[in-house]
Design a protein around this nucleic acid. Structure first.
Lengths: 152, 152
DNA sequence: TTGAAATTGATTTTGATTCTCAAAATACAG
DNA sequence: CTGTATTTTGAGAATCAAAATCAATTTCAA
């Protein structure tokens, strides 16, 4: 049993919730990815195991993992929610390639500092922020899906 | 006929589209607001004029105005699209108060510069970005809706 | 004025996500 | 262990904003 399963177990006990087979399966699958949608995770789990699993359970559990702090919701394209596995990650922002959908995480204390400054200037106290940079990889070598898609 | 109606007319002619009563009505109503949802604009127009107007027409026209550059879609709360009237506004980012829903627009060339730098460092060419700062007004005097809601 | 082409609006559809509820699983007391 | 109260599950229905459909209406260029 790895550390995160223990963390989940702990949370569930505290809240008088139950540790189910499904919750463990979903957590384990989620820990193996970096970013994923509920649908995609559902597909993966359905293919992999003999275990049947409802899509609603995936959504419920993914949201549970977000409560615990193992995941975080992202909304890069305004249609689907992407769940970000934030285990072993500190706060970060995102660079998203419009061509190959690559997601790069970065952090910039300098930008954060300027954000605080802007907020203060307008009489605001910040609680959180969203910074997403959209563009494309300069180097096509690194933009694999784009190469594949365009046949280059 | 104001400048923006001319601009719409121009675009429509160029694209062989038609200037309709509805499109003019929607443009004029939109120009009077700063930020608005399609539903809310629909409500306003339905109340104001004797003109009946379908919600689909509002959506279609608002998206048309975004193509022209008169409006821009925003997704602050990830549920509804807010249309930002960007006539006479340059590029800007947003500060959103979680208590009173106030939206403040700001610009920070310094932040933009750092964004470009981060992108370059990761081999990216930027096409656009999204920066939203969430928090609350420090000064309650300025946070009217919050005062109202909490009864302070 | 005329008619091809575009637009409208009532309605249906879409698609992601949440809700519902009966059946199944879990956990705790004894 | 075992019974039982409580929670969870999964299939499908509900929801909601937004887009699509399509027959009727409007626009506009010739």
């Amino acid at each position: 049993m790895n550390k995160e399963v223990g963390r989940l177990k702990n949370y569930l006990v505290k809240k008088r919730l139950k540790l189910t087979q499904q919750r463990e399966t979903i957590l384990e699958a989620f820990l193996k990815v970096d970013h994923i949608t509920a649908e995609e995770l559902h597909r993966q789990i359905s293919q992999t195991g003999p275990q049947r699993m409802g899509l609603a359970t995936i959504y419920r559990t993914l949201n549970l993992l977000c409560e615990i702090g193992i995941g975080q919701q992202r909304h890069f394209d305004d249609t689907r929610t992407i769940y970000d596995n934030v285990i072993n990650k500190k706060h970060h922002d995102h660079l998203i390639c419009n061509k190959c959908d690559k997601i790069i995480e970065f952090e910039s204390p300098a930008i954060e500092r300027l954000q605080e400054e802007m907020a203060a200037r307008h009489g605001f106290t910040l609680s959180n922020h969203r910074l997403e940079l959209y563009g494309h990889c300069i180097d096509w070598e690194k933009c694999r899906d784009w190469q594949r898609a365009t046949g280059r």
